[in-house]
Computed example of a mutant assay.
Amino acid sequence: MLEDRVEILGVPFVCATMNEMVEIVHEHVKKEEKCFIVTANPEIVMKANQEKEYMEIIRHADYVTADGIGIVKAAQWLKKPLPERVAGYDMMIRFLELSNQHAYKVYLLGAKEEVLQEAVRRIRKQYPNVDLVGARNGYFQWEDSTIIDEIKEKQPDFIFVALGMGRQEKWIAEHMPHVQKGVFMGVGGSFDVLAGALKRAPEAWIRLHLEWLYRLLQQPSRAKRMMALPKFVLKVWREKVAKGK
């Protein structure tokens, strides 16, 4: 397990590159161990600072990765640099590639039914050796035990949960204790990107650290949620000033 952590506003980010994350998670899979990955951006950090229960869930995850350039920049400001951004979508793709190489079992949970089915179709086409053992949309009663029962029966190596920020981490925290193995990872809107329902920002936008703006232009409804960004910057800056005294 990777031990080095960089704490930003109470959230412990793993100090690792993408390649290191893939390598250590692969070790968990080979040993048939359980593992909980949170891919956190500034919005998630702010939510955790506002909700004690959510902070506890995140702090008990095995790995929290820097999904957002804002996290990497904040670490630099606090003089606790992280090696690089480890984006959730990119990590999911790396795990699908790994699963394709080793015929690992994968389970998908979340998104609308049409989005989910298109994601399933594309996975089967692009990663034909992946053993896709189950796929359920995100519209279910919270008390529904059939999903975790299916996961217990099929024993997937990777469980990608796309229920949205907060809900997906809570679902994993509640249900992961009931299984013997598997890498559980909250992936937000990654199924939408995988299915082509949502476009990923072009490389030029990513290099300019404007991926958040590209997504906002596609989804103007996210404007209210984006207000977490300036609040995050201000809170990090205040922490930097306080520690500098």
Rank of each mutant, 00 (worst) to 15 (best):
S221A: 15
G10W: 01
Q219T: 15
E56T: 04
F191V: 14
S145M: 13
L208G: 03
G244S: 04
R85T: 03
G138F: 03
A204K: 11
W142Q: 15
M18R: 13
F36V: 04
S145G: 06
V45Y: 04
E33H: 12
I58G: 02
I71P: 01
S99P: 06
P42T: 09
K152T: 12
K224E: 12
Y104L: 15
M165E: 11
E169F: 01
G189S: 07
P128K: 06
I123F: 05
K243S: 14
W171Q: 03
V6I: 15
L198K: 05
Y89T: 09
E7Y: 10
Y54T: 01
P81H: 10
S145I: 13
V14P: 06
V14W: 07
D62R: 11
R222G: 03
E211T: 00
A16Y: 00
T146K: 11
E174C: 08
W171P: 03
V193R: 10
I71T: 01
I69H: 00
K80M: 13
K154M: 13
V86E: 05
L210A: 05
P230W: 10
R215P: 02
K231F: 07
L198Q: 03
F160C: 11
A48E: 01
H60N: 15
L82S: 09
N100Y: 02
M92E: 01
G110W: 12
N41W: 01
E97R: 05
L163Y: 02
E51V: 14
R215L: 12
F232D: 08
I69G: 04
V6C: 00
K34R: 15
L234Y: 15
Q219W: 09
R200P: 01
D67L: 02
A228Q: 06
H178N: 08
F184P: 09
I8L: 02
E20W: 00
P12S: 04
V130S: 05
R122H: 07
S99I: 02
K170A: 06
L108Q: 06
K243I: 04
V233K: 04
L108W: 12
E143V: 15
V115L: 07
Q50Y: 06
E113S: 12
Q155A: 14
F191N: 07
Q101F: 07
H28S: 14
V236H: 00
I147W: 12
M185Y: 08
D4V: 14
N129H: 14
G182R: 03
L194T: 01
G244C: 11
R94G: 05
G10S: 00
W205K: 03
R207S: 13
I44K: 10
K34H: 04
M226P: 04
E150T: 15
G110E: 08
